[in-house]
Nucleic acid binder design. Structure first.
Lengths: 221, 221
DNA sequence: CCTTAGAAG
DNA sequence: CTTCGAAGG
């Protein structure tokens, strides 16, 4: 058995102040993928940068305090690549690719489309290139597991307010179609281990207006 | 008897969170001059903007969150002018002039000369124009009281580290000379009511390296 | 080290 | 609402 967690921490340094390391030492994941770390490792204490028992790898944005991904892993991967090999995404530290004996694990922080939708094209481009990258690995006979923050809700059941979100990034037809495509290709959405009709099961809430306490959220995969 | 307080609050909204209104209602000053309010009145609650028993007047910078002065007064002045009438200073909300029956009270937040000394000329210009303004009032037979943050230490006794500050704004020869000039003109430094040789009596400390707990400070008038 | 505004989410 | 960096002090 192997436990894998994925977590958008919204600032690893902020998360650290709220007990990230306590959680890590309690949960003891074999593999942990983080998104929105908003830091580079040299801004961190040793305890956070390299906790006892873990190897860590970092995707760092050129822009300080923005984006970023991290991989914490008990077993050292055979090989780790930071980035997809495409500068426009790798500049933002969004992707970490780790090869283990039996599978390739990818930590990915998909772009946010932006309040004004200005980054939707960039997001869709990342989606397409990311999918290509995974498919190439599969063609080489590798098993692909990816975790991260896809920044998209798949179906109406994944949102508390699907109608209000039709025209917002995170629930646009083209964004949702990308997930259709991924599932059609045989990927399994682990969150679907929940009963398929399960409602009100979310993994994200906006900070605005106490949405979390009211459970007005979304499941953004 | 009339009590007058002057206080650089470094953000009135922040000061409010730390009990500014409690202090106000305890100290009950007749006149209170504030500097570095870093706000406009419409960013404030009624209780802060217009506390029971006070008339308030506001110097507001065009740049949000920057500079700013305020006057809280129990008695309504006969006339209040916001600014010195000189746009380059008034744009930064540094000055409030209030005429009472027996005196004119000026609240002034003198410019900081800047880490790199780039604003020393601006500061000296404000000093000169401010002094001229006061002298014009005196020529009209008015008594002038001014309070505020002059951002300058007069003598070595006013600083814990005079030698290290010779070349820093706040203790430059020309800045100190301006205070000489003001005192020569007959103004009384109320802080001098302390025994003249009193050391280690400061009104300002940098936030850096716990300077306040070590009382490594300055008296910036 | 503190405060604020601004960008991004 | 929250995070972070920037400017100013």
């Amino acid at each position: 058995m192997l436990t894998l967690y994925s977590w958008n921490v919204n600032g690893l340094r902020a998360a650290a102040k709220k007990g990230f390391l306590d959680w890590l030492h309690t949960a003891q994941p074999d593999i942990l993928g983080l998104q929105e770390t908003k830091c580079s490792p040299d801004q961190l204490d040793k305890a956070l940068r390299q906790p006892e028992g873990y190897h860590t790898y970092w995707g760092v944005s050129e822009r300080p305090g923005y984006s970023g991904a991290a991989l914490y892993t008990r077993q050292k991967p055979n090989h780790v690549q930071i980035g997809l090999g495409i500068p426009e995404y790798d500049r933002e530290g969004r992707t970490i690719v780790a090869e283990y004996d039996k599978f390739v694990l990818i930590v990915a922080y998909f772009p946010n489309g932006g309040r004004d939708l200005s980054r939707v094209p960039f997001k869709m481009a990342y989606c397409a290139d990311f999918f290509d990258y995974c498919n190439q690995l599969r063609q080489q006979g590798k098993h692909v597991i990816f975790c991260g923050d896809v920044n998209t809700a798949h179906q109406a059941i994944d949102l508390a307010r699907p109608k209000q979100n039709q025209k917002h990034t995170g629930f646009l037809p083209e964004e949702r179609a990308w997930i259709d495509q991924v599932i059609a290709a045989g990927y399994v959405d682990t969150f679907r281990a929940l009963p398929p009709e399960q409602t009100d099961a979310y993994s994200w809430w906006t900070y605005i207006s106490n949405a979390r306490s009211r459970n007005v959220g979304g499941r953004l995969h």
